[in-house]
Design a protein around this nucleic acid. Structure first.
Lengths: 199, 199
DNA sequence: CGAAAAACCGACCGGTCGGTCGGTATAAGT
DNA sequence: ACTTATACCGACCGACCGGTCGGTTTTTCG
């Protein structure tokens, strides 16, 4: 029957589509472009996906699964609150910068084109992630107040939005050849956030 | 001759176009939509602007001028480094949140559709702004080290990107009816950044 | 090998897009 | 009142878009 497992086909299409969407933008990328990049005809492409929207949705869904596996799950396995937050910052930055996980950038930038029903599904998962980060920050502040009598004036909610903002914005300016490399970025942002939420 | 000064016409068009671009996205907004919202025909609209690209460019250019007038210029008039940075954070947040200045949000989100030549012009002005912020942070750290012997481990460049990221990301999640209001946001982000760059 | 199913092609469709153009209405200058 | 330049309209164009479909190739299974 299939000369290739359909799951593999679909995932390869999603990978290529995510790359093109990231490079040229969702609206500026036609289904013909995606098909051509896969050495496929447009009709052949529609054999695997029903619509362009479905492809975008699957890309974003995959992005959330990547976040789940590469950020949330490893972080949950860490016991110490401070180390947990440190790990989250590092892993989240790495995921955003990873040239392999282009789905993340597409998810960050292209929410407008999604039809409302699908967009709400994605937004629900995003909100869960924000709450997760907020909880991490709350724990760090609580443990810091106990052990070091730090003030911790900034609310966990504002700090969570700030943290996600500074990390999710990276894709807007980051250049691999720039003077601010990924390995510098992680300690710098970590220091800044820890200094900020303890103040 | 003109039944309305052409400058006013152009600016009114830009205001309306910016509103639509922000609400529906640039690609999803047709020239017909813009014309209809102004009670104009598409042909009439093209009497004032040569292309859709030109409108987007003028919106972004206007956004940079707003930043110049409402953020940079007032900040420059302040002498004390710490107060300068405080003012920048407050003014920049207010500009991003201002329902009147929708051009800012369009500039933040829609850089892809611009043709390369125009995009470079905008990016040059953005880079100038980043350097400006970086300079502010450098000054604050220097004066803090002199007067309070703070460590100031975070590089001004990383801190500038972090600051702009957390502020520019606000438009992605902010809801006026949400529990995190603008008046809370300013002191929270200010506290966080000052704690961060002194640590 | 032969049959059945999945993969794929390429021509095609309706619709919309950015943009054009000839002509008309409007208003100011004299 | 007449000229003149601007503001504006609405029909129109070619291109391209997302999506469809009937038919053909390719692969797997018996």
């Amino acid at each position: 029957m299939p000369r290739e497992a359909p799951v593999d086909s679909r995932q390869e299409i999603l990978r290529t589509a995510a790359r093109l969407f990231q490079q040229r933008g969702y609206d500026a990328t036609s289904m013909n472009d995606v098909a051509a990049a896969l050495k496929l005809s447009k009709g052949g492409l529609y054999h695997h996906f029903q619509s362009k929207d479905e492809i975008l949705f699957e890309i974003m869904n995959h992005a959330m699964e990547i976040t789940q596996e590469l950020v949330i799950a490893p972080v949950r396995r860490i016991a110490d609150p401070e180390e947990r937050l440190r790990a989250l910052i590092r892993l989240h930055i790495e995921v955003v910068l990873s040239p392999r996980d282009r789905e993340i950038t597409v998810m960050l930038h292209e929410n407008h084109p999604l039809p409302p029903t699908l967009r709400k599904r994605i937004n629900t998962r995003k909100k869960e992630y924000i709450h997760f980060v907020e909880g991490l920050i709350t724990d760090v502040q609580a443990s810091a107040q106990r052990s070091r009598h730090a003030k911790c004036a900034v609310s966990p909610r504002a700090a969570a939005f700030a943290l996600l903002g500074m990390i999710n914005w990276i894709y807007q300016w980051y250049k691999p050849e720039g003077d601010l490399q990924a390995n510098n970025l992680v300690p710098q942002f970590t220091e800044l956030i820890f200094g900020g939420i303890m103040a």
